[in-house]
Structures are given as structure tokens and as C-alpha cells.
């Protein structure tokens, strides 16, 4: 999310089919060998139950177009200016509403919001999940993701990035989960998409989550576990160049709706504004 992400195409398909077949014949299914801890100790919960109140004990706002942070366009040529106005971020009827609007604002053509928990809630490992209904339309780029703590002076991608859920608004049945780290960041990140059948991300709420422990991150949507990423996957995907950076620091949570940028491309004439991402809850568990 922080810099350009291009989902991996299955260009190695033919070669991989050989691999997979072999693997199936000679080893157990991933499901049988994977480590799964049970995270049932609830340590953070925001149900957004108080109208008009965003809990600043938990959430910070990122403001602006990224210039102040040294990454104009938030590193991806995104088009929105983030604000903390109720127009862009509000709690109503039990939901957090992050709303992307088309309006001239401080030199940008769009406004939106980005909330994060840096230095307020950070955790190594656990189950992170949120129940979300996404916006739709060309140019929408909503995300629920984690960044590693950088208080030791480390910079991205060394700090690591776990994108629990991303979507581009012109693909209303598809989400993807991604990790970025040294040797596999931006366009080279390690990612997998999941396509919903007979439902969409913008008409229904879905639970997006990860279960993250030492040497693994499991991705799920609702009750479907659709990917596991381990240091072996990183090694394989990066020819041994990538470094697993998800065992050594706490991460914080980010919720945002970007507009335009390298991944989704800009909105077009058919994109309807405003567009709102509704978050029913955010919950984090420990073991």
C-alpha cells in the first residue's frame, strides 16, 4: 500500500503446475502442516458504537497528500487529500464511515480519510480482523492494513507491511492480501487475491482478517482461509533475496480509502461520488 503494488500475475503458471502436482504427491497439504495458534484473547475492540465519536485513544488521523510525510501522493501517485473532517471520517449508526469525495481541496481534486493506531495500539502477532463494506467504482482503493513500528529508525520496507485487505473499485468481487518487506516490496510484493462468488464487497459486509504468528501469516475472508504466507514462500518468491521481517517488531493498524494512484488508476466519468467505506468493527486478539 505504501508504494506501488502490482498483484502478481500467474505468469509462471505452467512451471508452477508441475511443482504443485509434485508437491501434492509427495507432501501433506498445507492445511495439515501449517501452524495455527488460537487467538482468543481480545485486546482491542472498536465497535464504533457512539455516534459522532472517533476514539482518539485508539486512532490518529493522517492528514494531507503525503507531501509532509515526504511521500507526495502517499508514494503511489494517489489523488486524495486526507482530512479529519466529519465529511471524510465519521461514526454514524454503529459504523465508522470513511468517505471519499470529489471536491477541490488544498490543491487536490478528492478528499478522503486515513486512520491509524501508531503509538496507540501496536502489537506483534495476533488475530487482526475488521468487518467492512467497501465502496465501488473505478479509482477507489480501500484498504485495511498494518505497518511495522519505525521508532528504531528503520524505514520501509525494512519495517514490513501486511495488507490484510485491499480492493480496487472496478473489481467488486475481488480482494487481495499482500506482504511487503526487503526484497519484495511495491511491484514485487507477495500477494494473493480471492474472488467472491454470488456476492460483492460493496453490497455486503465481510470479515477480513489475518492470523499472524511466528513464521506465518494466514489470510481469511469470512470463514474462508485463502492464503498462508511463510518465510519459505518469501524465499521461493524472491529467489532467496527476501527477508522475513514479521517476527521482530509490533505493527499498527491503518484504515483508509485512497482515490486513484498507480494501482487502481484514476476515477473516470462513471465513478460515482461520494463513496463510503463502512467499518462495523475492528478487533485484535492475542494468544
Amino acid at each position: 500500500m505504501k508504494t506501488m503494488t502490482i498483484r502478481k500475475k500467474h505468469t509462471l503458471g505452467v512451471m508452477l503446475i508441475g511443482f504443485v502436482t509434485l508437491a501434492t504427491l509427495t507432501s501433506c497439504n498445507t492445511d495439515e502442516t501449517q501452524t495455527v495458534a488460537t487467538f482468543d484473547n481480545l485486546v482491542l475492540e472498536d465497535n464504533f458504537d457512539v455516534d459522532g465519536f472517533i476514539d482518539t485513544e485508539i486512532w490518529n488521523f493522517d492528514i494531507g497528500d503525503g507531501t509532509a510525510q515526504g511521500i507526495p501522493g502517499w508514494g503511489n501517485n494517489e489523488l486524495q487529500y486526507y482530512t479529519d473532517r466529519p465529511d471524510n471520517a465519521a461514526v454514524e449508526n454503529g459504523f465508522l464511515l470513511i468517505t471519499a469525495k470529489q471536491e477541490a481541496f488544498n490543491g487536490a481534486q478528492y478528499t478522503s480519510a486515513r486512520l491509524q493506531t501508531k503509538n496507540k495500539f501496536q502489537q506483534l502477532y495476533g488475530r487482526f480482523e475488521a468487518r467492512i463494506r467497501l465502496p465501488y467504482g473505478q479509482g477507489m482503493w480501500p484498504a485495511f492494513w498494518l505497518l511495522g513500528d519505525d521508532s528504531d529508525g528503520s524505514v520501509w520496507p525494512q519495517i514490513g507491511e501486511i495488507d490484510i485487505m485491499e480492493n480496487v473499485g472496478d473489481e467488486p468481487t475481488q480482494i487481495f492480501g499482500t506482504v511487503h518487506g526487503p526484497g519484495y516490496s511495491g511491484a514485487e510484493s507477495v500477494s494473493k487475491s480471492y474472488t467472491l462468488e454470488n456476492t460483492r464487497v460493496d453490497t455486503e459486509f465481510h470479515v477480513y482478517g489475518i492470523e499472524w504468528g511466528p513464521n506465518y501469516i494466514n489470510y481469511y475472508i469470512d470463514d474462508v482461509l485463502y492464503n498462508q504466507i511463510t518465510p519459505e514462500d518469501i524465499e521461493e518468491e524472491t529467489n532467496g533475496e527476501g527477508e522475513w521481517v514479521f517476527n521482530d517488531r509490533p505493527f499498527y493498524i491503518i484504515l483508509n480509502v485512497a482515490v486513484g494512484g498507480n494501482l487502481p488508476g484514476p476515477p473516470n466519468a462513471e465513478t460515482e461520488f461520494p463513496q463510503t467505506m463502512l467499518v462495523d468493527y475492528v478487533r485484535v486478539y492475542q494468544q
Binding site: Y136, P172, T173, N198, T199, R200, D202, T203, E272
Partner: peptide, 10 residues
């Protein structure tokens, strides 16, 4: 058909 993906009526 019931596709479940026909959405966002305008």
C-alpha cells in the same frame, strides 16, 4: 439467473 452481483442501482 440470480447472480447476486447486480448492484448499485441508479
Amino acid at each position: 439467473e440470480k447472480l447476486g452481483t447486480v448492484a448499485q442501482p441508479r
